[in-house]
């Protein structure tokens, strides 16, 4: 098992390098660089631009730039942001917690609602409650999340129940700790719901499908035939066999915890990483983009590995030697 984990880490290194190279080349293959924006300002002289171009090695070939970045990476230097003119780590760390709060809230809400809902729907297959759940799933799967966010914001603006965006209220600094948490939670409500609702619909459908497949198996018939109570049949036999694909999905979810959700963040003016990265890509703030990509990639690989290890723990048929 430990050998297997070690192998997975060794395989991860070239994977991350290839991922980084691909991103770097994609960023570099489009014309222009960050300095072009500055160049349009007549007050900035050619010499200054040339100085920065040399400083950031933007006058060098793309591959050389890449290897220079890798070299610095090995010394744990992630580079400077052109736009903010500070190390990218400082910008990212400032927004990391915000993004994590939103993603984690959405993650918890999604799984806590979708899994029981899927089981419930499968157990009551084709009864009215199942049909109702499936109808709403289709509706919420078809609606884009930003549209839901806008509807929620409109509702909030009409009723005034929830704040209209941002992360903190104007009197945040004067609040007690409990008040601060409450304040963030009320601001969190709309973006979280908007982010989760489509995922709930999708995950619920996956759970329902897996559950139905498991419930159709012969060992379920055996369990019923020997007179096991129905709830034991569902939870001990069917659920345990239906959970595998969801564990894999859980691994994928892990990476999205820190990648941010640009659209929702922009609409709800949540100060997260998603909107930051969108601006960074558009303005070709290359090292900021690279670092975020690196973070997502590493988390993705770790998440997958965790899911695979978890699978061994829950399914005796899976073994890695």
């Amino acid at each position: 098992m430990w050998v297997y984990i070690l192998k997975r880490f060794l395989v991860a290194i070239p994977m991350i390098l290839i991922m980084a190279l691909a991103t770097f080349l994609l960023m570099g293959s489009t014309p222009g660089n960050y300095l072009d924006t500055i160049r349009m300002d007549p007050q900035v002289s050619e010499e200054t631009i040339g100085y920065y171009q040399h400083l950031y090695k933007l006058d060098r070939p793309l591959l050389e730039q890449f290897f220079y970045w890798i070299k610095n990476l090995l010394r744990l230097e992630f580079g400077y942001s052109f736009h903010y003119n500070v190390p990218v780590t400082r910008i990212i760390s400032a927004r990391l917690l915000n993004t994590f709060i939103l993603s984690f809230a959405s993650f918890v809400l999604t799984w806590a609602v979708a899994i029981p809902l899927g089981i419930w729907a499968a157990v009551h297959r084709n009864q009215w409650i199942d049909r109702l759940i499936q109808l709403f799933s289709y509706i919420f799967l078809s609606l884009p999340s930003f549209f839901i966010a806008m509807i929620l914001l409109y509702w909030a603006s009409q009723t005034g129940v929830l704040p209209l965006g941002g992360m903190y209220g104007p009197d945040y600094d004067q609040l007690t700790l409990l008040g601060k948490i409450g304040d963030i939670l009320t601001h969190l409500a709309i973006p979280t719901v908007a982010l989760s609702i489509g995922s709930i619909a999708a995950l619920q459908r996956i759970m329902r499908g897996n559950m139905l497949e498991a419930l159709g198996q012969k060992y379920i018939l055996t369990a019923r035939a020997k007179g096991l109570p129905e709830n034991k049949v569902v939870y001990h036999h069917a659920l345990r066999n239906a959970i595998n694909p969801l564990i894999t999905l859980l691994g994928y979810e892990f990476s999205s915890l820190l990648s941010g959700a640009a659209l929702i963040e922009i609409i709800c003016s949540w100060p997260g990483l998603g909107s930051l990265m969108l601006t960074a890509v558009r303005s070709k703030d290359i090292y900021l983009v690279m670092t975020s990509m690196l973070m997502g990639g590493v988390l993705f690989i770790i998440g997958n590995l965790l899911a695979d290890i978890l699978l061994v723990k829950v399914d005796p048929r899976i073994r890695y030697d």
Binding site: Q217, K218, Y219, L221, T222, A223, A225, K226, G227, H237, R240, N241, V314, D315, P316, R317
Partner: peptide
């Protein structure tokens, strides 16, 4: 339930793999 038990055709699927 206790007095009547059943054995099924397919031994590969009638036992819970977990």
């Amino acid at each position: 339930r206790k007095d009547i038990q059943m054995v099924f055709q397919d031994p590969f699927n009638s036992l819970d793999p977990r």
